[in-house]
Design a protein around this nucleic acid. Structure first.
Length: 427
RNA sequence: GUGGCUGUAGCUCAAUGGCAGAGCAUCGCACUGUGGAUGCGAGGGUUGUGGGUUCAACCCCCAUCAGCCACCCCA
């Protein structure tokens, strides 16, 4: 064991049972994305560092990206997010695309960070964006997609809530307190971190960045005002749209939601475990000028990203992960001895020809061992062809969950097995 | 990048500084034409690695590596 080369820190190994979950997640994401009329796309996994340098969060690129020189000396980055690539892809074909664009993607991303609960260095992310529309109803659509997804995977509104806020509203409120420009950015950050900090620490940091006592009180009032959204014409329309879309039970207004990324200019939202701990399972918002940063004409949009790690933890916590079913509908054809190997092999082929998932025991072993193998894999049906059956042109069909066995004519076996599999799948 | 906790059999974990163990798993037998159950037995370890203290180290000290958790940031 000691000679095994360790895997790269924070990377993921997907054993079949985990791969099954990953594919299931992908299928649910696809289902919801398609239901809302979105098209799948993808960008490169490798990008030049310059693509991210202009925007994103400063730290996201400088400290959290995997960067290495290629043979030509260019600095190459393993993509830490998809949005800049998306912006470029839109800019490249800006005049031929039909707006609004509805695109989604699911793929791997890398961030050079210290792994911990809910965070790895290699992860999969669902990105979904509506670009070229600039209305509260467009914003609401993305929140609704998020809610529909939660509903589709079996997460209920009392388990996970989507918390919504609007940056223009916060801007306006902070402006009223005399907080603007650089200081505003710092206060955004402070609001974002409020939940994690002790009250005294929070207040002392607020003072440190130069807020007056009056301003601090004002910020605290903003953070506690659950009715503040009524001052935002945009949010009023967003919540009204969400009501019409039938997902408002999943949504709540929260004045503390800000988000770290600088490019959000309108609605911002995150999905949180109501049980409190952990981190946001998903986050997104509205941006005014995404495409402009990479050289296109300004184009507004709204989108969100969801990582596979946190959502899987939530599914696990609420016991909503799919139950493995890989071998339920599979038939094991056992091998009795060398003289009957060909007979079993032939029958296995016949099963497959009829579209039945079939495993052939690949060597001669005790029946006991072969049946134990079937049991361990969760196979429900086993075929035994021994001398007694073979001589009469029969074979034995074992129903493992019921512990029963039926000897039938080989010519009738396929129909019997199909019937049995159909019965078992109903259980 | 900063801090805390933990590294003992394949897995989960025991073991006052004094002979390294259990449960589960694996393999074998009871049971050479039938899985889950039961009983009996077997294999499996340089106690993460390197140094130090000691008559004696899984245990104490130092370093290092790895894992987990938190901070930072974020999916």
């Amino acid at each position: 064991m000691k000679t095994l080369i360790q895997q790269v820190k924070g990377t993921r190994e997907f054993y079949p049972s985990q791969m099954e979950i990953r594919r299931w997640l992908y299928s649910k994401i696809e289902e919801v994305s398609i239901r809302y009329g979105y098209q799948e796309y993808d960008g490169p996994f490798l990008e030049k560092i310059e693509l991210y340098a202009a925007k994103s969060g400063e730290e996201l690129v400088k400290e959290q990206a995997f960067v290495f020189p290629d043979r030509g000396g260019d600095l190459i980055t393993l993509r830490p997010e998809l949005t800049p690539s998306l912006a470029r892809m839109v800019a490249e074909k800006q005049n031929e695309l039909v707006y609004p664009i509805r695109w989604w993607s699911f793929g791997p991303f890398w961030r050079y960070e210290r792994p911990q609960k809910g965070r790895t260095r290699e992860f999969f992310q669902w990105n979904i964006d509506l670009i070229g529309a600039d209305s509260p109803e467009a914003d609401a659509e993305l929140v609704a997609i998020c809610a529909s997804f939660l509903r589709t995977i079996g997460i209920t509104p009392d388990q996970v809530k989507i918390l919504v806020n609007h940056r223009k509203l916060v801007d306006q409120e902070l402006f009223a307190l005399g907080i603007e420009s650089d200081l505003k950015k710092e206060v955004f950050h402070l609001i974002d971190r409020h939940e994690k900090m002790k009250k005294e620490d929070w207040e002392s940091s607020a003072k440190e960045m130069g807020l007056t006592q009056q301003q601090i009180v004002g910020v605290v009032e903003i953070m506690q005002d659950k009715e503040l959204w009524r001052k935002s014409p945009e949010l009023i329309r967003v919540f009204s749209a969400l009501e019409s879309l039938g997902v408002s039970e999943y949504v709540a207004y929260d004045p503390k939601i800000i988000r770290g990324l600088d490019y959000y200019t309108g609605i911002v939202f995150e999905a949180w475990d109501v049980g409190g701990d952990g981190r946001a399972a998903l986050g997104g918002g509205h941006y005014d000028n995404l495409v402009g940063d990479v050289g296109g004409k300004p184009l507004a949009g709204v989108g969100f990203a969801m990582g596979d790690v946190m959502i899987t933890l939530l599914l696990e916590k609420y016991n909503k992960l799919p139950v493995s079913s890989q071998y339920k509908d599979c038939v094991l054809v056992t091998v009795f001895d060398e003289s009957l190997l060909t007979s079993s092999l032939t029958f296995a082929a016949e099963l497959r020809k009829n579209g039945i998932k079939t495993i052939f025991y690949p060597e001669i072993a005790k029946l006991q061992k072969q049946l134990k193998f079937a049991d361990r894999l969760g196979i429900h049906t086993a075929i035994v062809i021994g001398p007694d059956e073979e001589n009469l042109g029969n074979l034995a069909i074992k129903d493992l969950p019921h512990g029963t066995q039926e000897v039938v004519k080989r010519s009738e076996a396929i129909d019997k097995i199909k019937h049995l599999l159909a019965q078992q799948s109903r259980v």
